[in-house]
Computed example of a mutant assay.
Amino acid sequence: MKKLYLSSLMYFILQFFLSLYTGAAHSAASPVESSLTNLKSVCFKKSENAPQEEIHRVWLNLTNTDGIFKQILIGYIKGATNGWDPKYDGYTLDAYKFADFYSINEGRKLVIQGRALPLEMSDTIPLGYRSAITGDLTISIDRADGDLAARDIYLLDKQAGTIHNLRDGGYTFSTTIGVFTDRFEIRYTEDQKLGTHESTIVPQKLTVASKNKVISLRSDAEPLKEVSVFDITGKLLYSSQEIGKSDLEITGIQSGMQILLVKTTFENGNTSTKKVLF
């Protein structure tokens, strides 16, 4: 079986970022496709004489029940900035056939991202992923240290308009095949506004109602362009595109009584997400 070994560049990046540790990096005994997805498998021997520097880290996993596994690292450490840091940041290799998972900074897709100290609770980090499958994926905390070991870590799902505390467990969502760079965001407070950038969300005269397992939408302003319905976990239950009219009735959703999220995109590009009791 072919094995992937740490390049000197990757070792250099990891050595600086994980500066609490010294010693040689062991080669990662994983297939080529893993492309260092399991960052825990890269071992460093901790020096008893190393100074106790301030460092706060969280490892996040992207998995599914069929064995997909990708892992990223976000950490706050002395010397890093919130921009591109060649000493602390590492690009994803995107060598795994079935999926990729990364944080995003200045358009760069990073498997390791260093952030500036101090750790600010207002900080947010966009996440992106690539999927070669249609089905369910889960984002979860693998482990954390420093102040992040005890902090709540929230995952914002912009598509579903929901926010989930990863301390309560992993977040499972439905995906199609493709690359998605604007759906998820890590944050450390729950009370920040949900959704995409405020400049793209303008109030519309939209009525959304549910009765007898039929969801009805009516827009008194812009015609409807796209409508998607999600459950509170972010699972896509319904999607319709190129609607081009002001009214829509949605039938055929198989679900018990629960809160559903109806995301509407209008012809002018504005969006609205409303909750209905189904």
Rank of each mutant, 00 (worst) to 15 (best):
I77R: 08
G75K: 06
L117F: 05
M10N: 15
K2E: 15
S216L: 02
T175Y: 01
L156W: 07
R183E: 05
G195R: 00
D66K: 09
A99E: 02
S131L: 04
P118H: 07
K70C: 11
Y5K: 15
P223S: 05
K225T: 07
S122E: 13
I77K: 08
D94W: 05
V179W: 05
N165T: 04
P86C: 02
G79Y: 05
E54Y: 13
Q258N: 09
I243S: 01
P223A: 04
P203G: 06
T265N: 12
P118W: 06
Q159C: 07
Q241N: 12
Y5A: 12
I163H: 04
I104V: 14
S239W: 07
Y96H: 13
P223F: 02
A50T: 10
T65I: 10
T200W: 11
D147T: 11
R151P: 05
K193V: 14
I74D: 00
F16K: 11
G234V: 01
D168P: 00
G107F: 01
P126Q: 03
I125L: 05
Y188C: 04
K78I: 09
Y154I: 07
D182T: 07
T200K: 14
L248Y: 03
D231Y: 06
F98Q: 15
T200I: 15
E120R: 14
D147N: 15
K3Q: 14
K235N: 12
L277S: 10
N64Q: 06
T200H: 10
T233P: 02
W59R: 09
A221S: 13
Y5L: 13
F180R: 01
T189I: 15
I133R: 02
K3P: 01
L137C: 00
F17N: 10
A160F: 00
E242W: 08
S35F: 02
E53Q: 14
E190P: 05
S199C: 12
Y129M: 06
K2Y: 14
M121D: 11
Y5H: 13
G107E: 02
A160T: 07
